[in-house]
Design a protein around this nucleic acid. Structure first.
Lengths: 112, 112
DNA sequence: CCTCCATGAGTAGCATTGCTACCTATAGCA
DNA sequence: TGCTATAGGTAGCAATGCTACTCATGGAGG
């Protein structure tokens, strides 16, 4: 997976991962990796700042907890987050359709 | 179409547009707009630098010409450009599949 | 005649964003 | 004792598309 390909689509993926229920940061990363069968395996240096961004934007809310002697920050979608996820899904559909179409080989578009 | 969504995918779109035959910069922009029915309508400040990048990378080659008193730079795909386009197509397929899957609502994945 | 618009090319500088490369800490296993 | 997985974090970099301009020609409308 090319590195820059993800730009602009990460937020939606994180939100979608949190849609199923609250998760802490590391679990988000793992869930995304498992769901995509390893195709999207984000470094922690990508995940944590992104979650902070989303929290700052009010799309998710985090709370500290402790489990197994380790501190965790558990995130859940806010109402705004659910709405944003809807937008992201719609935006992705439109984007993917346009790119797929534009990328398609057009053998002889001007010769019917 | 969100602005940042395109990041990392622009090159492939431009290469695909040039696959059908040589075009000058402005025509590339117009062709891409028409092919996608206006969904991808790039500002010239995006197109020209991108074409320069692609030319610098050896994926396209440009030659100056004059038509209707206006100077044009006509670009065509190089062999490397054709190869890069193949890679872009494959990469896009993989990326789109992964994102579509990850973005999909997973009602109860853990409860069979 | 003058102005506006489409065509055609270009650049400087900005903002965003994901990544690399680090650091800290605990639990468990070899 | 050290390594690995888990868990969270940051500083700074590099890439990339966009905004907002500049310059130029030709044709249409007033």
């Amino acid at each position: 997976m090319r590195a820059e390909a993800l730009k602009g689509h990460l937020d939606g993926l994180l939100l979608a991962t949190l849609e199923d229920g609250p998760l802490h940061g590391y679990a988000v990363k793992e869930a995304l990796r498992e769901v995509t069968e390893g195709r999207i395996d984000l470094p922690t240096g990508t995940v944590y700042p992104a979650l902070h961004r989303l929290e700052g934007a009010g799309l998710i809310s985090g709370t500290w907890a402790v489990a197994n002697g380790r501190r965790r920050r558990t995130y859940r979608l806010t109402a705004a987050g659910h709405a944003a996820l809807s937008d992201q899904r719609a935006g992705w559909q439109e984007f993917a359709t346009a790119v797929t179409f534009a990328l398609k080989a057009r053998p002889w578009p001007a010769t019917p």
